[in-house]
Amino acid sequence: MTPRKLWTLVRVAATFGFLCGVWLLFSADNGWLSILAGASCAALIALASYDTFIDEHEAGKNMVFPRLLPALAYPARLVAAMYSSSFATLRTLMTGSAAPRVVHFRTRLKSDLARVVLAEAITFTPGTIVIDLDEDHLIVHWLNSTTRHSRRAGETVKGRLESIIGGMWV
């Protein structure tokens, strides 16, 4: 089997597994008829849409599938970052000391999924909103700006989120 065919098979299987998981989650029914119906529909949808779910060029190691341990720790780290930013934003709003600015910077992350997760994480932490994400280039509205220099702004806004996400995907 050629690497290309093997990667196609992995993409179909991953899409099928994900869809089956979602089916079980939403149906909350472990009867054989329900599982058969879900698996049949998941197989059809996976065959039709695996290329949309996982791009062919995302074939590198940890481009799509995250490393397990960092992925398990990620939600707790994100929530900690969210509460930390929330208190900072609360203080800014109460004292009226906001210094809003739009900053542009790049991310070192290579995987499309990792970049999207980084953008989601930045927006999820109050005080920063990702306005646009184009390849590795992010445009962010930053409430408590301390610099206009793009690289320094990037280091401050991305904070530890980028290295945490970089631990899951490339």
């Binding site: 969210m82 509460y83 009226g96 809003p100 509205h141």
Partner: peptide, 18 residues
Amino acid sequence: LQKDPYTRLQASSLVGTT
């Protein structure tokens, strides 16, 4: 209290998110 849509969105994220 905020003046423009972006900072209002930032303030609303305290309600909508936290």
